[in-house]
Design a protein around this nucleic acid. Structure first.
Lengths: 143, 143
DNA sequence: CTGAATCCGAGTAGATACTG
DNA sequence: CAGTATCTACTCGGATTCAG
């Protein structure tokens, strides 16, 4: 096959030019994760303002932006009802439901382990400044 | 219990003041996801430069920064060998291995579905500008 | 109600140079 | 080798205003 740098498929995903990176860049985002998680939990389409209320703290701008990106990637569906005032509903596509399992897992894991992590942070922050005891570096041949 | 806005636990994670958000903000990051994924795949501690090579495209600055954050949160362990030249190895803690399952799942899902998503993007981008047919909005009483 | 448009400060990320 | 330290360019995200 390829005579170049033999790169097993399992490692190719770490390469800069792997197209999957563009997908990861969309998913590895706080609001994208919560939008997918919120829609998944609700189990049915939600209106813009409904999502806005659920995702406490998100601005209208970020919600719009996030929804557009997810819609573009085929993870979220957008339905406009030509009424006055306008009514727009957002739901997950099949693909969105699928990846939603994963993003939801991240959010849930965070809830389950938040205490351990907060403790770790305290420990880390505490030993800052108490560490700098420049051990008289042992010399070792470096290969 | 709480007389305030009855909020079932399943929805509390979406609130702005839920501590778990600080964890999600760490995990919902491209490089954090790849660092955890890379260390997990390698199955054994990796040196700084080794990780740098694997995570094609990451700058030394971002790698250092990402590793610090993950170390602070107790997901990554850092071992310094007092040799010359210095040798530092990074590995996953128990907690890191655990969450690594989830972040790896995201990365793998991205690889598996990148084609569908690329197609969705093309479709979305194509119908931009061909859509604006202002349907003569049907008037509907609003509530 | 559902956005689009703008302004703007803060934080992010890259490139580069230097150190133990 | 494994960082730290800068400097800069740029993007993100928030606040505000306006519109269909």
């Amino acid at each position: 096959m390829d005579t170049k740098q033999e790169l097993s498929a399992e490692w190719a995903m770490f390469r800069r030019d792997c197209p999957s990176r563009t997908v990861v860049e969309v998913l590895a985002n706080k609001w994208a994760l919560y939008v997918l998680g919120g829609l998944r939990r609700h189990e049915q389409p939600m209106r813009f303002s409904e999502l806005r209320r659920l995702l406490d703290g998100i601005t209208q701008k970020m919600l719009t932006q996030t929804l557009r990106v997810l819609e573009r990637d085929g993870l979220v569906s957008r339905t406009v009802y030509p009424t006055v005032p306008p009514r727009v509903e957002y739901g997950l596509t099949e693909l969105g439901v699928d990846v939603g399992r994963l993003t939801t897992a991240i959010a849930e894991w965070s809830v389950e382990h938040v205490q351990e992590i907060l403790t770790a942070r305290q420990a880390y922050d505490a030993q800052i400044g108490t560490e700098p005891q420049p051990v008289p570096a042992i010399r070792v041949a470096h290969r």
